[in-house]
Amino acid sequence: MSFDVNEYYSRLNGGDVLMAFKGNISSELISNVLEVVESRMDEYSESSKIRKKVYNVLVESLQNLYHHIEVLPPEMEAVFDERFGILVVSRVDDKYRISTGNFISQEKVDVLRNKIDKINSMGKEELKDMYKFILNHQRLSDKGGGGLGLVDIARKTGNRLEYTFEKYNDVYYFFNLDVYIDFAQ
């Protein structure tokens, strides 16, 4: 049975939601989302420390989506959008949660899963060393991605990257990533 993306989106889009979006992930969309979330956090009179952390992590999450999103084939584009992604920013218990979702080709699943598991197994100092190593040794892709986004998110939040891969069809999985930022730092 194929994964129900809309049902999953509705499930995320409940409770204390600052921003929810599903559709084409473009540079303009990223600018708009950042503006909305920034002003919403002002309404909550969030401390500047937390506000900055959420903003930073949101930038990386959105740009990760932007850089890695796969252009969908016509039969899926008819249902979704060409560069389809999901974003929900909400407050859950005593944390901010940034959820992102996108389709990923089956053959890329293992590499991504291994990368996240490796990051999750690392402590603060190891993440710092990994960040500095990639910063100093890996070149930017043509699109400007640097392979640093997830490491940076893990470092800044100090929390595990929670994820699932749900089978959509024979070619695609749906990748969901939940990033948590604690209110108290």
């Binding site: 930073n56 990386e60 910063l135 890996q138 640093l148």
Partner: peptide, 13 residues
């Protein structure tokens, strides 16, 4: 800098 992303971090380097 108020904020910088990881794409910028390499260019700043």
């Amino acid at each position: 800098l108020e904020y910088f992303n990881t794409s910028s971090s390499k260019c700043i380097l």
